[in-house]
């Protein structure tokens, strides 16, 4: 049903994902983070969401200049317009998927 090596990979990956996720919650119970850290982290949501968004746009390999994935760039145009205009995440995702399917049909 499940091979031993896959099981090892799953357990190992689960642990290395879980530990960084929970450590701050455990530490946060014991110590209060310095004010300066909290002040900087206030900008984390904005920063990390933008970084994650941009990362999906680029074809990147260390040592080479990142190249935009043009199909994603094109599909992003109607997606962003929908997000700004309708302010509805669900509709944004639908428009995005349809736009991408159309772009791939043509390209």
């Amino acid at each position: 049903m499940i091979s031993k090596s896959i099981l090892l990979i799953l357990i190992g990956s689960a642990l290395v994902t879980w530990i960084p996720r929970i450590t701050p919650f455990i530490l946060g119970k014991m110590v209060k983070f310095p004010k300066i850290v909290t002040r900087f982290l206030e900008y984390l949501p904005l920063s990390i969401l933008f970084a994650l968004l941009l990362e999906t746009v680029f074809n990147a390999k260390a040592g080479h200049l990142a190249i935009p994935k043009w199909d994603i760039v094109i599909a992003l145009v109607p997606t962003v317009i929908t997000a700004v205009w309708l302010k509805d995440l669900m509709k944004t995702v639908v428009v995005g998927i349809v736009a991408m399917a159309l772009v791939r049909l043509v390209m």
Partner: peptide, 23 residues
């Protein structure tokens, strides 16, 4: 699944979430 544009759900969701936060 790429031919149906489903993989783009990730980018679209990040775009929507980012714009909400940005605004």
């Amino acid at each position: 699944p790429e031919q149906f544009g489903l993989d783009f759900a990730l980018t679209a969701m990040f775009a929507g979430l980012f714009i909400t936060q940005f605004e």
